[in-house]
Amino acid sequence: MPADLGAFLQGVFDQVHLWASQSPFWSALFSLGWGIVKVILVLGFIIVNVLVLVWLERKFSGRVQSRLGPMRVGRPHGWAQTIADMIKLLGKEDIVPRAADKALFVIAPVVIFTATMLVYVVVPMGPRTIVSDLNIGVLYLAAAASFTVISVLMAGWGSSSKWSLLGALRGAAMLVSYEVPMVLAVIGVVLLSGTLSTNAIVESQSGLWYILVQPIGFLVFLAALFAELNRVPFDLAEAESELVSGFNIEYSGLRFAFFFLAEYANLLALSAIAVTLYFGGWQGPFLPPFVWFMLKTYGFILLVMWIRWTLPRVRVDQLLEFGWKVLLPAALVNLAVTGVYVLLT
């Protein structure tokens, strides 16, 4: 059935494309239309998955902590809890602090959500299921992942509160410091696969997943991932028990919902990237590629959650020291070894 549906949709798409290519005007319109459809699909994918992820996090953390998690909203295991929370957030008063820089304050949540969505452009969910198979995929990723820094700073400065500023500065320092090892670790994968395109990287893992040949690179990537995602042990920007929610302390209602959703969308995006780069993406026997992709991504997400609920938080100067003095050298060593290996084979 799925194969038929895929073929059918492909047929429809080809037919429309053929009609549109008759004139430049219809061609342009078709491209625009198709672009909008892709955005809507990605947005839909993100929103559905984020709703599931929030619920999953609460259930998982509950079970780890010897309790049940949401149970009531939506009789079997509170599956509608996230929906209820979102409705609640939407109904809240929109408060903008009097001393806040209104423009920055308002734009920050939009920027962070956009930054997260940008990553989805190069996530391959199947052999031909990708928004845009850029042949500079990895380079694009490194650039897109840096956008979150801007929005964190906007939020922290725009809130005009000492606590949020402190959180934002910490967050920015952390995000910037950990991008370097992250990208260096990913370059190891690029060397092995010989291409920057994410889809090609997945295809080149048909024999061997890169996690098995790049263990150090993966560990560096994993550590940097926690910093990029702002999760414990590296959740300095938020640090609930110290800065009482850090850079998004002054946000409420829909704006806060944006930050919240963006955090989980980011989690999903970067986990998908991790799976793409190290775990063979959509590769796998018997099941359709998309199912493999989802299984692996969620498996990785559970690993991330497991670590999050076990470890305490690292202090900001120790965090930066760790990033520059441990991760960076490790990533460089990994790169050197990989480079030599590729040269010799």
Partner: peptide, 16 residues
């Protein structure tokens, strides 16, 4: 103390 340092889980165990 664990909660202050960012580890939420030991709190639940201790309370249990």
């Amino acid at each position: 103390f664990a909660l202050d340092l960012g580890a939420t889980t030991p709190f639940l165990y201790a309370i249990r």
